[in-house]
Structures are given as structure tokens and as C-alpha cells.
Design a protein around this nucleic acid. Structure first.
Lengths: 347, 347
DNA sequence: GTTAGCACTCGTTTTAAAAGAGTGCTAATT
DNA sequence: AATTAGCACTCTTTTAAAACGAGTGCTAAC
């Protein structure tokens, strides 16, 4: 059906229109296509085909006597069927050098910048979510007479810490016991598995000091689950100023604010329903995006995975006429490099 | 001299011009002033005075037959002599509620946002610099067979940590000794005081394991001095789009990029030569700012102090016609609240 | 010293005309 | 039956000219 909706020639013309519009950002006319393609058809013929394509909803006219621009449906068709699957070796672009020892935060910021520079669009990247990640090591220490330091190490060597106020210090022997208690009971549990019930049991076992210990355990739990507030790094937001269709002063303000606030961007990261099975890459065109203010944009995201259900997202936001091919390539490469990068060597 | 340069009437007129220009952003003409002030002078007289003010460099004409706008010198005079020192009680504006227990980073981000919202300009805020801060507590632990966790607590309970790769684990006894060694030798030292010499001595003392210990010590030093890269938080960068004189597409792009990169903003924070003695507030007007791209902006900064030489900076960046009075008030209030807020109760 | 009056300047707004790009349709061509 | 040349028509963009208007500087009168 939709297979037959467009014959080969129409596809070629549509392709040509989209390609051309991507480059110029201007509506493209029949004469341009007539010369641009190797179809050797007169502009009149192209005009007829274009009329058909418009009727079918793949392209539209900003106004009478202007050329055509791709509609959302047109872009969608392009992304789904027209992009050549070059399947070029993933590492064609220069490899990003990732120092394993670097702080994750720094690496991600760097990646975002790289992606933005490479594509000339805005980029977004989130730290891996550690919900399913497990506690590996845990330690309390006396810092001074009124503060205890709690440190938690998760699989993947993510470290969390918290300073706890206490009225009186815990003596070293108690502290040692407490540490053993905590480690034996919590090690190997994922964050989801540590619930209030577990904590209650622990408090029970701790016996004396249970008032102090109560604080301590609460603090530990808090420290562990603290990264609910998902860090989002962006870069190259100002790139959107390069695309006239996005930079009329009304839009631009909304968009840039969106990037600054980052509130809504979360929805990009959590929304994974439409994830394409094979590539792990999702494309939102115009209104398909879960963010209303970005209805004039396209968004391409990829999910990288560190194994064990620990996932993060990288993405690109740009005008609808973005260079999907290049963007998807870039994301694929980066995804490949990120996948599993922080996975501990063997542990 | 400069005392006598402007008589009372000229001051009044200059004040009126600046006030009016601040509100409207449009060049202001003689007739406007004639009505706006209580001087009861005709526009002709005002014109004469304005000609004088222009000759003296306090105001200028965008083009013949336009009204006058304040020059940098004019703004400077306004800020130095014309603002009424209301000296209103600092806490007139609603108190910011600061939870002492909150993570510092979160508080600062919140502050930046608040400041931006209150003023409608862009805000900038830096975490306190801890150069002069002292090491309070320090601990190494075995996380697993190939990783050691190093945790350092500084005065003010700032916690740094680092995971160190090792070939073979250190046994518990050794670890205990090492911890004692580190704590006895480093506690109480400021970061500036821990130099390579100190480290060399430590390595010496450590004796056996010195190859592993070497790694460990390097890592500790690195962890401690890691915050060289001064975090800068900004908010409300998009506010500059509200001021036409800044938002012609060339400027706006440069400015916003500046905010995104944050590279040059550092100079705002480190440049403290011109700090005003009494208020601790600095005002850069136009070219006075250390950042070239912001030559059409004014910048107001305040330095807050947590005691013991630990300082941070808060600031506002906006158009030259910014509401200096309001901005300075806001900064004063915030500074007052920030001063010493994280100072440990007694320790 | 102040002010009314007026000619003059220069940016902005308005209006009209011309240019240009592209279409849709018809009739001729292959 | 598909393609194409030709042409009238539409609608935006560009250009040019005119009118407007805000504000000044100067002169002469108060």
C-alpha cells in the first residue's frame, strides 16, 4: 500500500526536494529539480508530479507561487525510506579519545560539545541512570566530633557521599561494627531493592544507638537515591541561531529558555516507547517530539547502555531540515564508543 | 574639580536623562526632560544644558536630530554620585530560605535562578574557592581487589573522592597505617601548602609499597586540587533577548555563546582589583568589563565570603541601562545571606 | 539667563511601483 | 498517453520616492 503510494520517480523527486531544501532552507521550485536530478524531465512534468506529491501530503507550499517544502510526513518518509543505509564503518569519523580515568561528568560535557561542534546543532546528553545498579561498598567514618561521613560506591565505581550531623560521635568499635553490618546487608542490592522495609530491618539489627543509626541509615538511603534528579548536559544551544526558520525572536527565546531550564528535556530521555529495535536510534520530527515548544524542530536520540540496565541518552536537536544522515551517523559512532565504556574491567 | 564640573542643575538633568533612558531605552529629548523634571525650564534651556553635558562627555547623540543617551562616563557618574544611598534595611526583599543541609551546588543554582528572575538580567554565581581551605580528614579504603577509594574532607565539609586503580590490594593492616600516616601528615594543611615536596617526604616515610603508595598520593593530591576548574553557574542568559540594544542577531549570538562556554566569565571572578572597599560591590560599565564581547553590557558583581579566605562571587550582567539600584540592592541582600552560611557551626 | 520660533537634519514610516520566482493550465509535441 | 513549451496569473521581495516626525541648533526677543 504505502509501498505503492509513491512510484520510483516520485520518490526521486521527493528526495531531491528534501535534499535541496536541507541545503538552502528555501522553498524549492520545479525548475530547480528539473536541473538538479538526472531524470531529464522538464519543469512542467516536475510540476505535475509535485502537485501529486502535495496532494498526498509529502510536501507543501508556503504560499501560492512559492516552491515546495517538505511536510512532516515528507521528512518521515525520507528518514524511513530514502536515506541510503551506507552502513559505513562506524569509526569513520575521528575517534573520540576517552580517558577511562576521567570523571564521568567531564567526559559527558566534552562529548556534548563535540557532538554540537560536529553537527552544528544543539546537543544533549544524560549521565547513565543507575536505578538497577548495585551497591558495591559502603563506609562510615568519623570526620570530627559532630560529623560522620558516609560514602557509598556503586557498581561502575560511581561514588556518592554525604556528611551527617550527629550529636555525639560513635566510638571506633561501634563504627566498625556498624560498617560491617551495613556492608553485609546492603552490598549487592540494587537501589530499587533497598526500600524502607530493608532499612527498618537494619535499624532493628543495629540495636543500641538506633536513634543515631536511624539518621545514618536515612542519610545513606538518601545519598544512594539522590541521583533521581538526572543530570542533563547540553551544548551548542546557540547553534539554533544559525537557522533562520528557528530564530525569529519569539521562537528563539522559548527554545533557548528550554535549554537553559532543562525541565522538559527530561521527557526526551524518559520517553522510549518508539525506540527503533535495530539501531537504537529514535527520530522525532516536528510534532512527534514530546516537547511542545520544539514542534518546529527535529530531535534525534540514541540510547547508550553500560550493561546491567544502566542507560543514558545522547541526542541532537535542530531544525526539521537537519542533516539526518550525518546526525544519525554521529550518534551511532558515539553510542558505540559510549556503550559499556565505564563497565569495570572485570571487578 | 570634578566636584565643580557639574552644577546642581546639570546633575539633575543628567539624572533625569539617565532615569528616562533606563525606562524606555530610547534616546531622550529636551522636551521630555522639560516636562519630566520639576525644574520648570523650557526645552530650549534644557537643550543648552544638554549641549554642555554632551561637550563634557556625559551624554551623546546617536545621530544628529536624535535625543541623547548616557555615555559610559554618564553611567559611571550616575553610579558613583547620583544613586540615592537608600541604605534601606538589607532584608527588605523576601528572605531567601537556605537550607543548610542542602548540597551547595543546588543552593547556588537556585540562587542564580532567583537573582535572574528578580532582576530580569542574566546572573552568574561561583562556588566558593577553597584554595586556602584546609584538609580535615582523609581516608583510603579497599573497594574491591583492584580499586582503592580515596576520600578527602576539607574544612567546611567539602568532600572530594577518587577511585584509584591498583594492581594488587593493600592488606588491611597496611591500609590502617597508611591512613594514619596520611592523616597525621596532611590534616590541617591548606591545599596551597601541599606541594610536591610534601608528597615526596610522605612517599619516603611510606617505605614499602612506595610504588602503590606513589599512585595513591598522586591521586590524593589530584583529588584535592581538582577544583581548580572553578564551577560557574549562570541563569537567565536568555533575559538579554529582552533588551533590543543587545539582541541584534550578531551580538546576541556572541553573548549567549559566552554564557554557554563560561570560559571568559572566569575573568570576572578573578579580577578583583577595583573592588570597592566599603560595600564589596563592583560595577563594570561597558568597556570597563574585562570581557570584550560584553562591551555593550554592564556587569555588577559582589564577593561573598565564608570566612578564612574562602570567597565566591555573585553577579549580574545586563544592558548598560540596567537598574543599578535594584541590582545592587539584590546583590547586597544575597551577599549578606551567603556570607558565612556554610561556615561550620563550631567544629 | 531664559524662551519662543523656525529652519534644518536625519532616521523612520508609508506608499507605490517594479521585479522575480514559481505556479497552473492549455495546447502543441513526441 | 506522457511530456513539454508557452503564457497568464499570483504573491512575495526589492527598490524608490515621498511624507512624516522627532529633535536639534541658532537667532532674536523677553
Amino acid at each position: 500500500m504505502s509501498e505503492q503510494e509513491l512510484d520510483e520517480r516520485k520518490k526521486k523527486i521527493l528526495h531531491a526536494i528534501i535534499k535541496n531544501y536541507m541545503e538552502t532552507g528555501e522553498p524549492v521550485g520545479s525548475r530547480t529539480i528539473s536541473k538538479y536530478t538526472d531524470l531529464n524531465l522538464s519543469s512542467a512534468t516536475i510540476r505535475n508530479e509535485m502537485a501529486d506529491l502535495e496532494e498526498l501530503g509529502y510536501i507543501l507550499q508556503p504560499h501560492t507561487s512559492a516552491g515546495r517544502i517538505p511536510s512532516d510526513k515528507g521528512y518521515r518518509f525520507y528518514v524511513d525510506h530514502l536515506i541510503e543505509q551506507k552502513d559505513r564503518e562506524v569509526s569513520e569519523m575521528k575517534e573520540f579519545v576517552i580517558e577511562h580515568t576521567e570523571k564521568m561528568e567531564r567526559v559527558l560535557k566534552q562529548m556534548a560539545k563535540l557532538l554540537a561542534n560536529n553537527t552544528n546543532y544543539a546537543s544533549i546528553i544524560t549521565a547513565p541512570q543507575v536505578h538497577a545498579n548495585k551497591v558495591k561498598f559502603l563506609q562510615l567514618s568519623n570526620v570530627d566530633s559532630s560529623h560522620i561521613l558516609a560514602v557509598v560506591v556503586l557498581e561502575g565505581n560511581i561514588v556518592k557521599n554525604k556528611i551527617i550531623d550527629v550529636e555525639e560521635p560513635i566510638d571506633n568499635e561501634q563504627m566498625l561494627k556498624l560498617n560491617i553490618l551495613l556492608n553485609t546487608n546492603l552490598t549487592g542490592l540494587s537501589i530499587d531493592q533497598i526500600n524502607l522495609g530493608t532499612i527498618a530491618v537494619l535499624k532493628e539489627k543495629a540495636g543500641i544507638h538506633s536513634n543515631i543509626i536511624s539518621d545514618v541509615l536515612d542519610a545513606v538511603a538518601e545519598a544512594i537515591s539522590e541521583d533521581e534528579d538526572l543530570e542533563i548536559y547540553t551544548s551548542g544551544a546557540t547553534n539554533i541561531l544559525k537557522y533562520p526558520e528557528l530564530s525569529d525572536s519569539g521562537r528563539v527565546s522559548e527554545l533557548l529558555t528550554e535549554f537553559e531550564e532543562k525541565n522538559q528535556l527530561v521527557s526526551l530521555v524518559t520517553d522510549r516507547f518508539s525506540e527503533e529495535e535495530n539501531t537504537g536510534i529514535q527520530v522525532y520530527i516536528g510534532n512527534e517530539a514530546p516537547i511542545q515548544t520544539m514542534k518546529d524542530c527535529s530531535i534525534v536520540t540514541a540510547t547508550y547502555e553500560l550493561g546491567e540496565g544502566v542507560k543514558g541518552t545522547i541526542g541532537i536537536i535542530g531544525p526539521k531540515r537537519m542533516d539526518y544522515e550525518n546526525v544519525m551517523d554521529n550518534l551511532k559512532t558515539l553510542k558505540a564508543q559510549l556503550d559499556g565504556i565505564w563497565k569495570k574491567p572485570k571487578s
